[in-house]
Design a binder for these strands. Sequence first.
DNA 1: ATCTGTGAACATGTTCACAGCC
DNA 2: GGCTGTGAACATGTTCACAGAT
Lengths: 258, 258
Amino acid sequence: MTRRHNRTRGDRGIPEATVARLPVYLRALHSLQEREIATVSSEELAAAAGVNSAKLRKDLSHLGSYGTRGVGYEVEYLVYQISRELGLTQDWVVAIIGVGNLGRALAGYGGFASRGFRVAGLLDADESVVGEQISGLSVRHIDDLEQVIADHGVSIAVIATPAAAAQGLCDRVVAAGVTSVLNFAPVVLSVPEGVDVRKVDLSIELQILAFHEQRKAGGPGEAGAEGWGEDHDGDRADDRARGQEPPETTQYVEAVEA
Amino acid sequence: MTRRHNRTRGDRGIPEATVARLPVYLRALHSLQEREIATVSSEELAAAAGVNSAKLRKDLSHLGSYGTRGVGYEVEYLVYQISRELGLTQDWVVAIIGVGNLGRALAGYGGFASRGFRVAGLLDADESVVGEQISGLSVRHIDDLEQVIADHGVSIAVIATPAAAAQGLCDRVVAAGVTSVLNFAPVVLSVPEGVDVRKVDLSIELQILAFHEQRKAGGPGEAGAEGWGEDHDGDRADDRARGQEPPETTQYVEAVEA
DNA sequence: ATCTGTGAACATGTTCACAGCC
DNA sequence: GGCTGTGAACATGTTCACAGAT
């Protein structure tokens, strides 16, 4: 999606689509580890991860030849390789900006520390929240943002503030040296080259569901395409009949907010 | 991603990638509306949405010919067309299952009602939460799940429970007639054909950021590929040197949890 | 003159099907 | 025999560049 085109020579880049699935495989593998299963076939692991086995094998083949033909993959070894590829063998220091319900949910999220993400700062602009203890951390005032980032070496900022505050705070964390941002605010953040932004947007997810839900009933426009005088164009020679889409089952992977 | 292959005749399906971006365009358009801007060019709207203009035009062309050459798009009309396409001209009834911090954040989220999503039920298994008033709704006991779904005609269920409870609750909502599920629990849900599941997974997002962050420093494996006796294969003739990836700026669109 | 809509070229992602190894 | 790893076929998505409408 962002990867440079025409990669040349040796091409050790892992496709974005694969990177996005590695965490899913990792989770499935951890669950196998808990059940003390030592070896797994691509078929089994794929089922646990909700993908098909060809895709799983192709994905893993981008990391190396870590399986054994006729046997499968050794769970522990694969966990290690994927973790290393994702950079989870080192710790990442995270600051959470905005301590509303969402910020609290994030601060309390277990799968955090367990995956090498250490929350080193909670920040908020609301004086009545500053000082509160949450998951063993004291909430700092947003004025201390740069200080907290510098003191703890924060490299990932999670923005869980209202939309209006997000871009300004993003600019500040980037100026303070943060190069990865996870944005929950419903705005498109702009950042300089070299900074990664990922977006999580609940309302977008719901709208996508609504789109498919509507298809399951009967085509769009049920609620009437009326009341638009103008008769705008009227072209679209191809008929409007969309009919029912085939149903879908697969697990997607897309954007969301809250 | 799930669309059937070899679509034939008339093909009125809108590409998934386009569907995923329509909500983003819609948000940008609403912001233009607030600033009382009546007309917008593909260039301007694309900038506001964080995509390039060719992509925007191609996306909109899937809905119809709603622009005017030499001029641009009429904001209000485009808002209407996209809303209709997404099924936002009708109301969708939502139940939120799990009223922890995340469930509360979702219940209080404004962009909800404003986009045609009506939260008709909050449910939790914890007796100490049942009965609590949140955003004007009284939390119901999870035992009432089927009742709430039937009474209010819920068509979208949001699962914001711990992982262990998610599949069971998913089975129940599906049995009760829900055909769209938004899952925040860190598990792969399996559902019958015809039911849509979307997943939002915070830890996955963080892991993807960590991957890119690691690349910005120097290749993976910094923390050493040691301690794995076995010397497993050792093949991978292509050298391990990944070097620095070019930096990235673009806004992605992917999966997350909390 | 300007800006949309789109065919054609390119790039990425997925699936098939089987060679190759255990 | 069984299962991985992968080339080749297919499908989807993106970008370019320009014809065509206003």
